[in-house]
């Protein structure tokens, strides 16, 4: 390996170090905070430096080590000082439980409630709110005539009156037997005889018989002349 070639490789390596030193520093600090810490106060200056995997896997490890030690340590120290130190008694699992819910997790249930309000059951008494298009139309052109409720109320539910137990036995589902009637008593005629006594006065004539109509006009005229 020539000297010029070595210098060129060093320069390219230096450029890579500079480029990598810009982005992943914050992520490395977060990882330091979330990592389980040892009990007791942790001196800031003695915090272990983050290890960059690509830097470790490089073939020219001797040259890399010399450069990495000099550059990122000061930046990592500043980031660690801004994070509050976790309690020494808490484990990493407890930290996850005690952590406050993220704002994103709070917004999700609200959306589900809205969907539930829109999708009311068929038997609900509440009318379905207008669709978004209808709302936009109402905002643009004004409210139209009030529309009647889309759903009629469901029938009244409740318990029905059952038939009296003496009249109907609900458990019997077969052909029912009629009540047995006692055999009738044989019919015997009861005769009643009238008592009729002989009598002389039976007929009663009322009034006089109607006179015969005169057959001729002269007879009629004579009757009228006799008045």
């Amino acid at each position: 390996m020539s000297k010029a070639h070595t210098i060129a490789r060093l320069e390219s390596l230096l450029a890579r170090i500079h480029s990598r030193a810009e982005g992943p520093r914050v992520v490395a600090a977060a990882r330091v905070v979330a990592a389980p810490a040892a009990p007791g106060p942790v001196p800031v200056m003695h915090a272990p430096p983050p290890r960059e995997a690509p830097a470790v896997t490089e073939a020219e490890i001797v040259v890399d080590v010399e450069v990495q030690v000099a550059t990122p340590e000061t930046v990592l120290a500043v980031v660690v000082e801004e994070e509050p130190a976790p309690p020494a008694a808490l484990e990493s699992r407890e930290q996850l439980v005690a952590a406050e819910p993220a704002p994103v997790a709070e917004s999700a249930p609200v959306e589900s409630e809205v969907e539930e309000e829109v999708r009311a059951p068929i038997s609900s008494r509440r009318p379905i709110p207008p669709q978004p298009e209808e709302q936009l139309a109402a905002m643009a052109f004004g409210a139209e005539e009030p529309q009647p409720a889309r759903h009629t109320p469901p029938p009244e539910s409740g318990r029905l009156l059952a038939a009296p137990a003496a009249d109907f036995d609900a458990e019997v589902t077969e052909v029912r037997e009629a009540q047995k009637v006692a055999s009738p008593v044989p019919l015997v005629p009861h005769a009643t005889a009238a008592v009729l006594a002989p009598s002389d006065v039976v007929a009663d004539v009322v009034g006089a018989p109607r006179p015969a109509v005169p057959a001729t006009f002269v007879a009629v005229l004579d009757a009228s002349l006799a008045l």
Binding site: V218, L221, S224, L225, A226, L227
Partner: peptide, 27 residues
Amino acid sequence: ASGRGVACTLLSRDEHVARLFVGGDGG
């Protein structure tokens, strides 16, 4: 027509019908 001596008097009279009694002089 009948050959009997009769008397007659008016009983009632309206626009359409006249009703007369035919009998003896006394009646």
